[in-house]
Design a protein around this nucleic acid. Structure first.
Lengths: 211, 211, 211, 211
DNA sequence: AATGAATGAGTATTCATTCAT
DNA sequence: CATGAATGAATACTCATTCAT
């Protein structure tokens, strides 16, 4: 397209950037704000700066858009996060603190955190997706905590602990913070300070785990 | 009226005063299963065994039905729960365990637990209701934990703790369990055993809090 | 019913007066204010001080209620009005003035005037009723004017006039006033003074008719 | 596009800019036939040959559709009609006859005449619209008659006349004819001949006004 | 690739009508 | 006679989806 055309038809210029991920990003924001059903594709399109029809060039349906957000939004980030944890060499208590902190920084503090809320809200309506999310995200996330706890037990730092339920308990306060920031925090509820909150959580947790 | 008539005209056997709560109960189940927007009033009516029009005899709109469920469903139970905690005389560690256990038994294990999921999902769409829920339920719930912690600190059982964020952390695993059972648990995810889960939670928590 | 019961159950006392005509009267007011379709039987019942079910003791349906209002509301009054005109002995110009004035006083100024608006609005939806109204009210009303005009022509007071359309023209300003008072007059439009208006009308009309 | 394609896909032949007035036109017909409340948007859409959803592309609601019909249907025609009257140079009696005749031809004989019936029927339900119609249409229409009468008085043709109510009386028979043709005329009532009717009206009126 | 006008199935809500009491 | 809870058909309005351009 010529420079002249650019001036005459600036509308056509931004298309180059209108990648699926931008559409998904706009959709995620709205899904998190309003929920899946209450989000209109009109609004998604408007926020992404494209027409409604364009959404259908990239996603077969609203359901598929939702699934794509979850699948492509969270899993890659999570894998990345998972890898960061592998090669840690310090104490298990420090590893636990690092886990929580990194999870928060890489996911919890970003808008990806909203996906947790979405999945909890919509698990009933998207059973296959819920299964996928459970297997790919939750199980893997819990496994990381499980490994960390096992590591602490093996090294003699931690008491022997049950290993199925305990990871859930390690994760719960982090998840609740993510949910909180995408629900009540928006409605004028007293805000929480994530850093303080997570420090207290890890402090309590590590004390609870130590021999 | 004879038993026979009862069979012929069961419609009129229903008591006027029982109706609102029957309807609210049916609605709660569906709202929890499917979310607010995805629940059709037709289905609520069907589950309650009445016609759609009947819903409007008792609730002005779908919104008001939702609000009534939250307001009348949870607050009274919560107040009741609150009162049970007042007069405890044992150790603070035991009080903490009792708090968690009672909360679970009286609310978490009932279908009222679904309201937590609903509020998290719909806080953005019902800001006034979210405020109400925050003030009437969350703040009061957190206050109970706050009092228990303070009590432990005062008696010398617990370490000095920050008191704004810590209650959230005490509550988080219980809430997550409530959410879990109304989301992933339904989709074939591995179930959790509430008793085991909560025992581990309180065990870790109390160890974390003790001097 | 004893005097005591009267005190104990005053609710049951007004029933004696709840005659069909009272219900019709309440309905007429609302039909005129809001139109047929926009009037809810709930409101009719409320205004009449009875329950909605009671309406069905006296009228088979909303349509029948409407028809009864028209049939029983206007025809008897109109017959009465018709009779007043028979035995007049003065000049035809004075008769014309009397006709207009009496029509106004006995019908136009009362809430029966609203029926004209109703019939114009609903003629399309109630063809049989429109036919009935046309034959029983309009034709008879026009006949009165026709007779008066013929009388004036016969006596030499009036010019020879066409007798099919002229009665409509005599009546039109009176009807318009009735419509006006039940439509724009209610919406803050500048009011008209009926007496002045009708004096001018008859003055113009008589001058137009005289030789 | 070929003629064949036209036949295969007539849907897309309709012009975007023609749509609103086509829809309004279809709606006007039905509103006049059945009244506002009794007209279903399904039927409006069907008569316009579009789907119900299409109506909402152009009008925000049924109310707005009604308002658009009144605002855009009648006011421009009326303004146009008003302008035609300005520059008349003949006698005031002839002007009065011309006024009536032109009003009839340009509005009364068209389906725009139905708007008068609609406004009378619905004034109570659309107070703001009634005010608008009163100010933009009625007041202006009456003003034209007022000017004509004043002109006749000033030139010595007409007697001195009251000027607030008289214009209403000049207009009433024309309006009644418009109403008649959209109500009883449809129900098998004896038809009136507009030309004869209006000739008699202007004849009577002018005789009444002349010195 | 992108548009946006058009669609029509789907849903909340209303209200005339019924009927056991 | 009178009630008013219950009904369900009717209808305004929404929004995911399609498709000619």
């Amino acid at each position: 397209m010529s420079v002249l055309a650019k001036v005459i038809e600036p509308r056509w210029e931004r298309r180059k950037d209108a990648r699926p991920s931008e559409l998904a990003s706009a959709a995620l924001e709205l899904f998190v704000e309003r929920g899946f059903a209450a989000t209109r594709l009109d609004d998604v399109a408007k926020r992404a700066g494209v027409s409604k029809g364009t959404l259908y060039l990239y996603f077969d349906s609203k359901d598929e858009l939702f699934k794509a957000i979850v699948r492509e939004g969270i899993v890659p980030r999570f894998v990345e996060f998972e890898e960061r944890m592998r090669s840690y060499e310090g104490s298990s208590a420090d590893l636990m603190r690092l886990l929580v902190k990194t999870w928060w920084q890489k996911i919890g503090a970003t808008k990806l955190a909203g996906i947790s809320k979405l999945m909890i809200s919509e698990a009933g309506n998207f059973p296959e997706l819920a299964k996928f999310y459970h297997d790919e995200v939750i199980v893997r996330g819990l496994a990381i905590f499980k490994v960390a706890i096992q590591r602490g037990i093996d090294s003699g730092e931690f008491r022997p602990m049950e290993l199925e339920h305990t990871p859930h308990i390690c994760a719960a306060p982090v998840l609740m913070l993510m949910l909180w920031r995408n629900s009540f925090d928006l409605c004028g509820a007293q805000g929480m300070d994530p850093e303080t909150y997570l420090d207290i959580h890890t402090d309590l947790l590590v004390r609870g785990l130590l021999k």
